[in-house]
Amino acid sequence: MIERTPVLNIATHVILAFGLVLILVPIWLAFVAATHDLQAVNSAPVEFWPGDQLIPNLTEAWAQSDFGQKFVNSFIVAIGVVVGKITLACITAFALVFFQFRGRVVIFWAIFITLMLPLEVRIVPTYAVAANALSPFQTIMDWTGISWLLNTLSGVEVSLEWNLLNSYTGLILPLVATATGTFLYRQFFLTIPDELVEAARMDGAGPLRFLWDILIPLSKTNIAALATIMFVYAWNQYLWPLLVVTDRANYGMVVVQLSDLVPDQLTTGGGTPTWHLAMAATLVVMLPPILIVILMQRWFVRGLINTDK
């Protein structure tokens, strides 16, 4: 369809440019701040053009926040969440879609409901569980009298304990405990034609073989989409790691480190705020997920729209 709309075309570009400027301004200012030294950043008319201090600022911010280990941690957690979520989502959706058994609908809804309440909303009790991940089972055993039974029979005091604070498991598992990916996979599995399943069964493929040799290769785009979304989600986690990790030196994640960089009275002790370092660190922390979103744009957009959160 060809239309000649020169005026509207110019207006379109102007509006888009204006919108893009609004989006870019804060990050541009942060970037500019990261390229100046302490005096220039704190001088009254704000700088709009970059200076020459970017590399020194980055190096100093990196050393000051001890980012080396924290980047490794962030990557471990992000990749752990990605792998855990994709694996769980895939096998759960597979069982729900391709098998006939009683309670299928109940289990489907039990998983579905987890979409409703994000981690932030139930943060306090989830933290209590992370302090001892086996406490639910301990309580159940105490209530049902199993602990008492075991105690009288064998003389063993049942006390289950598995502390997840300050561990990768504690950072990863609660982030895996939602159904986001399960639904992406379920929707995908529902589009698999019946004939494909029939053909596989006629060729003698069992369910696991069907999953491994046919479904997983077919779901490569799904995996890419989910991986992108989950990586960004896990990398950007803030509240949960802030609580679970007290041993920042060994298990801290980069995004949490930002909370220490807020240049207020506490961190500067009344001195001049070190905005140039704070902004340099912010840039470093933002970069990996931004790169992933830009590079994986196609899959990411498709995945986001299909999961509906």
Binding site: P26, I27, M286
Partner: peptide, 10 residues
């Protein structure tokens, strides 16, 4: 892709 605390800090 930008983390909420990074937005806050910027």
């Amino acid at each position: 892709a930008v983390a909420a605390p990074a937005v806050g800090l910027a």
